[in-house]
Structure formats: C-alpha cells, structure tokens
Design a protein around this nucleic acid. Structure first.
Length: 297
RNA sequence: GGGGAGAUACCGAAGUGGCCAAACGGGGCAGACUGUAAAUCUGCUGGCUAUGCCUUCGGAGGUUCGAAUCCUCCUCUCCCCA
C-alpha cells in the first residue's frame, strides 16, 4: 500500500513520531522480509517498536499494547504526535479498544491439548469446550483448533471461561465518547494493489531475501520461533531447503501476500471508524501525506 | 516417415457408459477474528427467468434409452524410433 513512505512524510509534516504496529518488524535481522523502513528513513523521523526483539522471542497483540501505550504518552509529552502505522488489524484494535487480561500463551499446555485432540480424535476438544464454555464453543468453528486451544488454555489457567472474561471487558467498548485518535486507511484498486505486490515479491529476492533468511536459519530462529511464520521467510526457507526454485518462491510469496492483503481488507472493511483515502497507481507518498493532513484539519 | 502418450472448468489434476456441472489441490471472491494475527478458520467459485432448466470435458460425426467416458475421422501437444 505504501504505508511506510506515507507515514514518514506525514510525520515530517505534522511533527510526528512513528510507532510500528507490526508483528514482525519488531524482530532484528528481518529487514527485507518485513519491508522495514530503510536506515535513512529511520533516521529522518523517530520510529518505535522496530528491531526490539530477537526473532525467537514472543510477541503478541497484548504485548504490543503494553509497549505502545506508554510510548504514545511519551511522544505526546514531547509535544509530538504519535502515528501508529501497521497492517495488523488485531494489533490496532487491541491498542485502541484494549483486551481482557489473561495469562500469556503456555506452550506446554497447548501442546498437551493438541496431543489430546490427536489421540482422542478430531472434534474432541471442541466437544469439551462445548461442555465447559458453551458460549465460546458456539462462536469458534469446530475445526479452528488454534482458537479452541486458546479458549481451553485460558479456562485451565484462570478457571474462568474466556467468553466471560471477554464479556466483562466489554469489547468493543461503549460508544459515545469521542476517541482521542483518528483512523486513516489507505486503499488501492485491486489490480493496482496486486501489481505492486508482485513487484515487491520480486524485489525482496533481488535485495537478498535468501541471504537474510539463511542467516536466520543458521541462527536457529526458523525452527519454532515466530519468524518462521513471516511471509517471505517461509517462501525463502522452502527455497533454501531445495523444495522449489527461486522463481517458484517468488510466485508463492506474491500469492501469499495477496491473500494476506485480502484478509486485511476484510478486517478493515468492518471497521467503521476508518476514514479512507483512495490511492491511484501514480499517487506519490508526498501528496498522500498532504491529503491526510487536510483530512485531519 | 513409423510407433506411443495425451488434450477435462481460470490453472494443475481425478474421473473411463447413468450416482458428473464433473473429486481434489492451486488461484480467485466473500466472510470470521478478544495474547503466535504476515497466524488460524469458514463459505462460494460454468450460466440462468434457478427445489428446475441451459451450455460445458480439443473439433466434427456416430453407437446407445443415456457418453467426459465407447467407435470413426480431423486438429493440436509431448515422448521414442527413423
């Protein structure tokens, strides 16, 4: 979409600092795969929550909120305007609307639950959830193991059904009060967007995605860590393992990125608080930034 | 020139007389989303005046109550021999 460049111009114009709401730009050593701002860009305006973790460390929407909230305050105290930039719908939503407090992921518990499912047959865990937290079971599709496991995990760890915790938090929050923020969305025509995605996938490999991934691989970050899930890393890793050629990896990356972009659009379409800016193929980051400034006035 | 294999929906690929508008995968479209979210999951995907009808399985004929499936010819692709 071109968020990075636009955010940079916007920050320069209104005296802002950029807070990345990205689940993967937090990791060091994943520059190409996550399309991080370049060193020059990073130097032009203060950026936050980029390169703060090693690719094996846990990060999550809730953790993002914990880190971002105080940052936003600091930036305001400095007389600057925080500009939160990201594609992750859930991260933004959790930042803006909050999240019920609950224990973080418990790997071994999750693994145990998954083993039970494997042993006792598909549908077992959902059935159990149906008995212990019917409200959640109703909401979570029987095949969505990941979310079933999380619901059971919270239940075991807290003794309270996740659905109750969620309700008590009251998410989304009551309407009425004017939110202390504006939500701006950038939008492009599908064909334009897909062209850019295709080009970007190619670019990533040209810039050395394979070498970058190789380093992650050697450091052991791709075994089980979060980095393994990053677009670009996945495809590059498959290529390094010899599963397919680079050309195929580019194709896969494009397709995966298009799918990802669509999921994002689905998410944001439902977000009523967004003010949309439609971009043309030749819209420059400068003029887009100006349009946002005008919108904000 | 001779021999063999094949042509299926957007792509790949099953199907080899009725249960086939055609499995499955990819792609595409739409949706869900409360601590891995660049994740995970769901639905749809020939057309229509739609509990039915119409057009589709390289093309044209034919056999049959009935064909993507059998026969004939044609076109194209691939492989082997010359």
């Amino acid at each position: 979409m071109g968020k990075t460049a636009v955010a940079l111009r916007l920050a320069e114009r209104i005296g802002g600092e950029i807070v990345s709401a990205d689940a993967f730009q937090v990791y060091r050593g994943m520059d190409i795969a996550t399309a991080k701002p370049s060193p020059e860009e990073l130097a032009r305006v203060p950026h936050h929550l980029i390169d703060i973790l090693d690719p094996g460390e846990e990060y999550s929407a809730a953790r993002f909120r914990e880190l971002a909230l105080p940052l936003l305050e600091e930036i305001r105290d400095r007389g600057k305007i925080p500009i939160v930039v990201g594609g992750s719908g859930m991260y933004i939503r959790v930042l803006v609307d909050g999240i019920f407090s609950s224990p973080p992921a418990d790997r071994s518990l999750r693994q145990r639950l998954r083993e039970e499912e494997a042993r006792l047959g598909p549908g077992y865990l959902h059935g159990r959830l149906g008995r212990e937290d019917p409200v959640s079971a109703e909401r979570i599709h029987p095949r969505n193991l990941k979310r079933i496991v999380r619901a059971l995990e919270v239940l075991e760890l807290t003794g309270t059904p996740i659905s109750r915790l969620q309700r008590e938090w009251g998410f989304p929050p009551p309407v009425g009060s004017e939110p202390p923020f504006r939500m701006i969305g950038l939008r492009r025509e599908r064909a334009d967007l897909y062209r850019r995605i295709d080009r970007r996938a190619e670019e990533m490999f040209k810039r050395g995605l394979l070498a970058e991934t190789e380093r992650l691989l050697e450091a052991g970050w791709l075994e089980a860590g979060p980095a393994r899930l990053a677009l670009g890393c996945r495809e590059a890793a498959g290529c390094l393992r010899g599963e397919y050629e680079e050309e195929e990896a580019v194709r896969r990356l494009s397709a995966a990125t298009r799918r990802f972009a669509r999921r994002q659009m689905t998410w944001w379409r439902a977000e009523r608080r967004i003010e949309w800016i439609d971009l043309l193929p030749d819209s420059s980051p400068e003029e887009t930034a100006v349009r946002i400034v005008n919108l904000l006035e």
